[in-house]
Amino acid sequence: MRRVALVRPRVGLGDLLCSWPAWRALRAFRPDLRVTVITWPETAPLLAHMRREVDELLPFPGFPGIPERPPDPLAWPRFLRLARERRFDLAIQTYGDNPAANEVTARLGATARGGFRAEGWWRDEDAPTYLAYPREEHEVWRHLRCVEHLGVRLRPDADRMVFTTLPGDDEEFRRLALEHGLRPGRYVVLHPGASCASRRWPTDRFAQVGDALVERGYAVVIGGVAGERDLADAVRGAMRRPAHDLTGRTSLGGYALVLRHAALLVGNDTGPAHLAAAVGTPTVVVFLSGDPVRWAHPGPRHRVCRVAVGCNPCPHLTCPIDFRCALRLPADAVLSEVDRLLW
């Protein structure tokens, strides 16, 4: 085995960050491998930070049954040609419990296939290189179990989250810190965004947390991507105290350093919570529809805020009823966890 394809067509920052420890373990165990990740082209900025573990990105054109993006059938023949030109020795399905991902893996022309065996997948169903999807594990350990099943020996710290910065990230952070007067350890980042509405705690409650943090002597930074501008504006508009808005003003590496030097991140169950864990920053994460068993990071430096309402966790992108998991979680409950970490 020399040429390996990792089929991981996910777009979420958290999804790929939680895959990273397994890819790091694979590289440590077999540094001679050439590793190609098959995923969406817009993930290239994140994969650039994984240059020690990943040799190349092969852009994925989509496929029926892979929900992240509509498929581009006209691009499929070229994609298959590029995949088969690489003559993969092994193609690993690391997407999850989805038969369509197994179908994609089977079409790459690799000598051998393995990884997650999705429920309902029938081809190669007896191959020992496949692992029944480990639903009860944390997301990091799901992927570690996958490479372990294929023979990778895991080190004791295999589940440690990591993030590698790039040249220029430090200068970006220094510029932002100087412009906003940010002192390491004396500011807290609020991240009110999330990819779906069912994971977004109300902005007025983020504002209450922000005001309380300013009263406790901390500067408040509101972070997010440009598409979360309306959420950032809503938080700032509801705050009585000033806040520094960096929404859409940082690269991924720059935001990672903003988090690294922060005293704390308070945010929703979304990618920046994993990014904060990867750079060693304590977190208070609000879980609404999401599953903390799968996504919360362990240890006393990472606190979960959640109200069990009988229907969460749930798969809905938008709550179909009264969003009780969000509305029954008051700002005081989140501030209690914040104080546990700051004092």
Results as ranks from 00 to 15, higher is better:
Ala212Asp: 05
Gly271Arg: 04
Arg200Gln: 14
Ala263Pro: 04
His261Val: 03
Glu215Tyr: 11
Gly193Val: 07
Gly227Arg: 07
Pro272Met: 12
Val188Lys: 06
Leu182Lys: 03
Ala256Tyr: 08
Gly210Ile: 14
Gln208Cys: 06
Gly248Thr: 07
Arg241Ala: 12
Val258Ile: 03
Gly254Phe: 02
Val266His: 02
Leu178Ala: 15
Ser195Asn: 10
Ala212Arg: 14
Glu228Lys: 08
Ala243Phe: 05
Asp204Pro: 06
Gly223Lys: 00
Val235Glu: 02
Gly193Asp: 13
Cys196Gln: 14
Arg183Trp: 07
Thr250Tyr: 06
Ala232Phe: 01
Leu252Ser: 03
Gly224Asp: 06
Leu264Val: 03
Pro184Ile: 07
Ala256Thr: 10
Pro192Tyr: 12
Val214Pro: 02
Gly253Glu: 08
Gly193Lys: 09
Val214Leu: 13
Asp245Met: 09
Ala219Arg: 15
Glu171Tyr: 12
Glu215Ser: 14
Leu264Gln: 03
Gly254Tyr: 01
Val221Lys: 01
Leu231Met: 12
Ala238Ile: 12
Leu182His: 08
Gly271Met: 07
Pro192His: 13
Arg216Ile: 09
Val266Gly: 06
His191Pro: 02
Gly248Gln: 09
Leu176Trp: 09
Asp245Thr: 05
Pro272Ile: 06
Val220Thr: 03
Leu213Asp: 03
Pro184Asp: 09
Ala234Phe: 12
Gly248Ala: 11
Asn268Met: 10
Asp233Glu: 15
Leu176Gln: 13
Asp170Leu: 13
Leu190Ser: 00
Arg175Thr: 11
Gly193Pro: 11
Cys196Met: 12
Leu252Cys: 04
Ala238Trp: 10
Asp211Gly: 09
Leu213Lys: 05
Ala238Leu: 09
Cys196Phe: 10
Ala207Tyr: 11
Val220Asp: 01
Ile222Cys: 02
Val235Thr: 03
Val225Arg: 13
Gln208Met: 13
Val220Glu: 01
Tyr187Leu: 02
Thr247Ala: 08
Ala177Glu: 07
Ala212Lys: 08
Val235Ser: 02
Leu259His: 04
Asp211Glu: 14
Gly253Asn: 03
Asn268Gly: 07
Ala219Cys: 07
Gly210Asn: 12
Leu257Trp: 01
Ile222Asp: 01
Asp233Pro: 04
